[in-house]
Computed example of a mutant assay.
Amino acid sequence: MLDQSERGGFLGGGNRFSGAVSQIAAAGVLIVVFVALSIVAPSFLTADNLFNLGSQTSVNAVMAVGVTLVIITGGIDLSVGSVSALSGVLGVLLMAEYGFDPLIGILGGIAVGAAAGLVNGLLVAVVGLPPFIATLGMLSVARGLVLIATGAVAVFGAPDSFRLLGQGVVGVIPIPILLILLVAVCGHLVLTRTRLGRYAYVMGSNMDAARLSGVPVRKHTTAVYVLSGALAGLGGMIAASRISSGQPNFGEGLELDVIAAVVIGGASLFGGRGTVWGSLIGAFLVAVIRNGAVQLDISTFYQNVLIGVIIWLAVWWDSYQRRKLGAET
């Protein structure tokens, strides 16, 4: 097993410093955008809108935690949008068509996501497909399965109690916001307190060195994709609960927002760097931008352009920092 000093050797202090700077910068931008929208859009800074913002962000934020694990290993998961749709639809079908309890339906949806993640992980770790190709294929397969299962028609009929997952509150706090915190804490503990988390950073920093050091690369690569799929499944169930139905067209393009959140939050697409809290900052920044644009009646077309530019800047910064660190060493 790799000890802390070995892990530090793989990661490098400069790499960690660069990641911290990226997270601080993203947090600073989030604060600036939040304050600006509070001034120019009076309806933005209201309790109803803020709670709605938090609930809307829950789907992306939960999924971003799983994608963070994948990106830290140097992989990518383009399938989370389609997998979340498949999970949401099949979870609702379990309740509406087969009469299962909402808890079983939710767990079933999460299991569907985990199964899709397992396929992704095996294709990458065992078959040897590049993560981009493996998950791009799953994006298409999952979307096709959704349309086959529903005939491209929304699924209704889930019991009213299912709405609690996406619409319920504990006191005054929406349950989706509590789920963000729960998933984030668990994800943070996985990254910082478990062997899987340590090995994820090592594999992302140098896969060949990880193999030579005895890291069971196939096992842990598969595990991170399973977790990403399971959290995509949970995100799909939250989204289905929010609208009390399984929508076959849900999640189209959602993977771009999720990956954007992770990259904006300081994770490196080259692997070896990233944190759960940084990804949450990125998820809320994307959500605040989209929510604020709606408040200001700005077209979604312009929102997409802005998010794309932010992704360019985040990846450019990461590349610049890597070149700088390489020149110094």
Rank of each mutant, 00 (worst) to 15 (best):
T275M: 00
S244E: 14
I110N: 03
G253K: 01
S161N: 11
E6G: 08
F34G: 00
V170W: 02
A209D: 12
G12N: 05
L136E: 09
Y302C: 09
T46A: 03
R218G: 15
M1H: 11
Q303N: 07
A327M: 13
L11A: 10
A26E: 06
P174L: 02
K219G: 08
I177A: 08
N249H: 14
G246F: 12
G74C: 07
L11E: 14
A327S: 14
Q247M: 14
V202D: 08
S18R: 12
A41G: 05
G253E: 02
A149M: 07
Q56S: 13
F270M: 14
N120E: 13
I180A: 04
W277K: 01
L191H: 05
V226E: 07
L212Q: 15
R290D: 09
S268N: 05
V309S: 09
L118D: 00
F132V: 01
L86E: 05
V124N: 05
R143Q: 07
P42A: 11
A210V: 15
A261T: 11
G246W: 09
I76L: 04
I177R: 10
I310D: 06
I24F: 10
G108H: 04
A223T: 12
A47S: 13
L37V: 05
S79Q: 09
S268L: 02
P159Q: 05
I310C: 06
R242E: 15
F270C: 12
T222Q: 10
G274P: 01
G74Y: 04
G235Q: 05
S161H: 08
S268V: 06
T73L: 04
A27P: 15
W316G: 03
A261Q: 13
I71E: 07
R143S: 05
A210Q: 12
Y320L: 11
I173G: 09
I31P: 03
G235H: 04
S79C: 08
A314W: 00
G278M: 05
G271K: 01
D160Q: 15
L147C: 06
S18E: 11
V80D: 02
S299T: 11
T57P: 01
